[in-house]
Design a protein around this nucleic acid. Structure first.
Length: 750
DNA sequence: GACCTGCTGCGGTCTG
């Protein structure tokens, strides 16, 4: 320690200070300095700081000091650390081991890969810190309901890592509900919650997510670590016309593995050659993360770069990384990034965005504008962590080529404009706020079943009070909860039944679900094949994407031929080959925030130049702005197009879809496309009149509007909901009916 | 026109 000893340091317990001495830290980090008094004072705290700023220690140094001062010797766990990832638990265990040893506090990993005797031992003599996933915690409550009060009665605090990953999600609702159930079971009014997060758009909303209903009482701690600056570039490219469709009708099987089909022509329509040449040139020989967007793009891009490596007879340094690849393959890439000095570029989806420890990379590249400013910020934080080196991010954005008679939207270069809008938002220090909680009826079904199992039965009024008044399901009122219970008890579900004295019990249908191994997670997953080469599992492939023996596929950045499909065992056997088609993964579109789309319009209206654009991108922006003026979009929102019209509301995905739906409900043939709505067979005046009507009428009933929409069961237990309940979920979570008059009004005023 | 995450307890067999 230097002479300028931080005041926070002095307030820590003796063993904690000793540990800090051993680490030879020169001083505490800004966020740690601020967190110490906040956590020592007790109460709920949100700690937010950029990646690698020392958030974990910011929470645990004062928490361990608190344990030292308490010294009750009572049994029961003292601290609970909840993480969304097993990999993060393993990292944190490594990181906290010596600190806990110094403090003589037991540290226990608890997740699905940890052996059951370790868990049994911890249950028998509960003490110290437990690092756990929400699913393992759920299993503990459901299977050992009777032990809960004993295990957690001396709990000092709960630390929630990657808080932002839980906000507004099914898993987040589950976690809040579990923490609430622990408080109730132990008879504690509240157990301190400490949320750790990357910088969030709106800290107050994050605080509300940490302690529903009492966000105002949460202490906010924001780290102010300036980092080493950011170097950022947006590079423009032109897409090549696809000259051949993907080889669906390809003539039978290629005769030999040496036949090389024209698959490159298709893959070039996803990834132009000029772009892959630049990607190769800028990443080769260094350590990079390349975020390619979708799993298909990861495969196409990894395949292309690996081939370029082979062509130049260089050792391979490009590797694919996404959620459908096997754990072993992914860990090989992570380990190589972390521990191997050889140049390595991981071509990834969002898998490498969260806090898994992969050390520092030289640069980050991204294909396309991405879906959120928050994720852009997170990605930048993956480089520039070493002293004196700025973070480096290059965005590679391709636009469609101009064609006579092409779609007017092609010339607005909306991907490039979106990329610029994202960067402008980032520079202005804006990022998406957490989304507001929906009804989450699927997760409420789950929590009702879990609660019955935990207590062996529960009265409806108790369940309502616990889950919906004290717990996180506050958008569900008594009437709606009663309807949900009736639905769960109905003949078609039989999830629950009621005993003579009114106690809710698990029904015949519920038994099957709750006894199953996959009851504990609340998110839905697709059924999949396993892709196997000899004895090695390469990864998984969705059942819904049909494949046939003899077909070729790019997977894990390599090319394979399918030799056998075992539908019963759900195994696809492959062998290496020289040809390969891009794989197919189903997916739903991402939602872009209103403010990003508003900023896009501002970028198109403005004449500002942006230093971070390369020549090609700057030229494409000029062309897009010219076209924007030509179409008079600077003062019009509705323009004629062919036999119909194009609408430009400049709102985010959810509002765009709501307006489309409202127009469909008024008998227009409308569909949303690339930030616009296309309506066929109508006139500009006809649409303007309708917009006028919408603007001046009260907002339509969301449930009625949602009735026009297909109601796919998206969440895990949605299939148990009645049509009517599903409509209410859709109205609340997927559309925004209240904003319709305002959107229409703004378009008329434009 | 997108991504990601997670999992018990038991009974069986094998190894040191």
């Amino acid at each position: 320690m230097t002479n300028s000893q931080p005041s926070g340091f002095d307030r820590l317990s003796k063993p904690v200070r000793q540990w800090i001495w051993q680490q030879k830290w020169q001083s505490l980090r800004d966020v740690q300095e601020k967190a110490i008094p906040a956590i020592l004072a007790g109460g709920d705290v949100v700690i937010s700081a950029r990646t690698a700023a020392g958030k974990t220690e910011a929470a645990f140094l004062p928490l361990l000091s608190r344990l030292e001062a308490k010294e009750t010797g009572a049994d029961g766990f003292a601290l609970l650390y909840v993480s969304p990832l097993k990999a993060l638990i393993n990292d944190q265990h490594r990181r906290l081991e010596s600190l806990c040893e110094c403090c003589e506090v037991l540290l226990t990993k608890w997740h699905g890969d940890v052996s059951s005797n370790v868990k049994a031992r911890a249950r028998k003599r509960p003490s110290g810190i437990v690092l756990i996933t929400p699913e393992s915690l759920e299993a503990l409550l459901v299977r050992r309901g009777g032990e809960v009060s004993h295990l957690f009665s001396n709990l000092e605090a709960v630390v929630i890592d990657e808080l932002h990953a839980f906000i507004g999600t099914e898993r987040g609702m589950q976690m809040q509900s579990i923490l609430n159930r622990i408080e109730v079971a132990t008879g504690r009014d509240r157990i301190d919650r400490i949320g750790l997060s990357a910088t969030l758009g709106d800290m107050r909303l994050a605080a509300e997510a940490l302690r529903p209903g009492c966000g105002d009482a949460v202490t906010l701690v924001e780290g102010n670590d300036p980092g080493n600056g950011v170097r950022l570039q947006v590079r423009g490219y032109l897409l090549e016309r696809p000259t051949a469709p993907p080889a669906v009708d390809a003539p039978e099987e290629p005769k030999s593995d040496n036949d090389i089909p024209k698959e490159d022509e298709f893959s070039r329509s996803l990834l132009p050659k000029a772009m892959s040449d630049d990607l190769f040139r800028l990443t080769r020989g260094k350590r990079n993360l390349l975020f390619a967007g979708s799993r298909v793009n990861v495969e196409v891009c990894a395949d292309r770069l690996r081939n370029m490596c082979d062509d130049e007879r260089l050792p391979q340094e490009f590797f694919a990384h996404h959620g459908s690849l096997s754990k072993a393959i992914r860990e090989d890439v992570e380990t190589r990034l972390r521990d191997d000095p050889r140049p390595t570029t991981a071509v990834a989806t969002t898998t490498l965005e969260l806090g898994i420890d992969i050390g520092d990379v030289d640069a980050v590249a991204q294909i396309g504008p991405g879906n959120s400013v928050a994720s852009l910020r997170q990605r930048i934080g993956r480089s520039g962590r070493r002293a004196g080196r700025p973070a480096t991010l290059r965005m590679f954005v391709a636009a469609p080529p101009f064609e006579r008679g092409g779609h007017p939207l092609d010339r607005l270069r909306l991907d490039l404009v979106q990329a610029i809008a994202m960067v402008e938002c980032l520079i202005a220090n804006w990022c998406e706020p957490p989304i507001k909680a929906g009804l989450h009826l699927s997760t409420l079904i789950h929590q009702t079943l879990a609660l019955i199992l935990q207590y062996g039965g529960v009265l409806p009024a108790q369940a309502f009070k616990l889950l919906c008044i004290r717990g996180p399901f506050r958008n569900v009122d008594r009437e709606l909860f009663a309807e949900l219970l009736r639905c769960m008890a109905s003949d078609s579900c039989r999830l629950i039944e009621q005993s003579g004295n009114g106690v809710l019990m698990i029904g015949s249908g519920g038994e099957e679900i709750t006894e199953s191994y996959d009851f504990y997670p609340v998110f839905a997953t697709e059924q999949e094949y396993r892709i196997v080469h000899e004895t090695r599992t390469l990864g998984t492939y969705p059942l819904s994407s049909p494949l046939a023996p003899g077909e070729t596929i790019i997977f894990s950045g390599r090319r394979w031929r399918i030799v056998d499909i075992d539908d019963r065992a759900r195994v696809i056997a492959v062998k290496p080959t020289r040809a390969g088609n891009p794989p197919h993964f189903p997916g739903r579109g991402g939602a872009i925030h209103d403010y990003v789309v508003e900023t896009m319009r501002a970028v198109l209206c403005s004449t500002d130049t942006y230093q971070y654009l390369d020549q090609q991108a700057a030229r494409q922006l000029d062309e897009a702005r010219e076209r924007f003026k030509e179409l008079q979009l600077d003062h019009k929102s509705v323009i004629a197009h062919g036999q119909g019209v194009l609408l430009f509301p400049w709102v985010g995905t959810r509002k765009l879809e709501t307006l489309t739906l409202a127009l469909i409900a008024k008998q227009f043939r409308a569909s949303s496309y690339h930030h616009s709505i296309e309506i066929s067979d109508c006139t500009v005046n006809g649409v303007l009149e309708t917009l006028e009507e919408v603007a001046n009428a009260p907002a339509p009933d969301g449930v009625v509007l949602a009735g026009h929409l297909a109601q796919p069961a998206l969440a895990k237990f949605d299939s148990f909901l009645s049509r009517e309940l599903m409509c209410r979920v859709t109205a609340r979570e997927r559309i925004d009916a209240e904003s319709l008059p305002e959107i229409a009004g703004n378009m008329l005023g434009a």
